[in-house]
Design a protein around this nucleic acid. Structure first.
Lengths: 152, 152
DNA sequence: GTAAACCTTGTAGCAACTATAGCTTCAAGC
DNA sequence: GCTTGAAGCTATAGTTGCTACAAGGTTTAC
């Protein structure tokens, strides 16, 4: 137990875990963080345990674990005596996803590289990029590229 | 001009471009596809041009181009006489994004591999996976892993 | 005592669809 | 011509993981 008890404001907590107050409130709302104790005026105050917990969450998210996976990981880390098979299962599953995404992305890179390299810089009419997008036949791979999401 | 004119239903169109009717209606709503002609009863009917356009859209999306990029690519492919610099710029920009995502994902893979390999399969208390998530110091890389999104 | 900095809730927005509900229309068989 | 079942219609809400308001209330430092 720290001497200070619950003395950290939401802004300070967010700063320590490198996120924003809105995110902290969001995690509370969806039940990743417990309801904070409040001041007389209704503001949230946290202790060091909350800093650790939020740091764990942010780091797991940073690893790409979904919020639901983080929820499970948290539940398990709260049960230190349990065997860690499930933890391992979640991490392994996640690793597989990362690996398959990597594979599809590297196919995509090749395809895009080819497109860009072959574009002679003339008119749209004869643009290789437009051609390849128009005609799947021109792709190296038969299959789809996996719809590489959220790359802007 | 085809003999058939506008005779393809939304379901058939979706099938030909490998997507769902909902997606077609969505593309119409956001202006990627022009408003379809309608039967007396109000159902959409399409011609071969719509098949080509939708196929282009789906393929571009499959390449990971954002809807906004697709919109620009479509506008350009509608102007065959223009120089294709902008097309090239969009594709090159996208390629860069793919490359940087690839880099971050492969760092992530290493990190996850290390975690999973070092997990001895004992109790949660001493689980390497939980430890690494708890303590960023244990990571190979100083920086964040880039918050690998949407991997499930 | 007051002003700046911080906090509160609730709601809406982002991307790119996907799904649902409750209804209407179409095409084919009889 | 009639029935039936698949497919279509609109409108709206849900998905994921936050982020960004608006319109106020609280704390803290001077």
């Amino acid at each position: 137990m720290s001497m200070m008890g619950q003395s950290i404001s939401i802004g300070e907590l967010a700063r320590r875990a490198d996120c924003k107050p809105e995110t902290v409130r969001y995690y509370e709302r969806i039940g990743l963080l417990r309801d904070a104790t409040r001041t007389g005026g209704g503001q949230r105050r946290y202790g060091d345990d909350a800093v650790r917990r939020l740091t764990f969450i942010r780091h797991a998210r940073d690893f790409g674990f979904s919020v639901e996976s983080v929820r499970e990981l948290l539940a398990m880390s709260d049960q230190p005596d349990m065997p860690c098979q499930e933890v391992d299962a979640i991490a392994t599953h996640h690793l597989k996803k990362v690996e398959s995404r990597l594979q599809r992305l590297s196919i995509l890179r090749e395809e895009l590289q080819r497109m860009v390299t072959q574009c002679a810089g003339g008119k749209v009419e004869s643009c290789r990029i437009i051609e390849v997008i128009s005609d799947h036949q021109l792709c190296i791979t038969e299959k789809s590229h996996g719809g590489a999401h959220d790359l802007g």
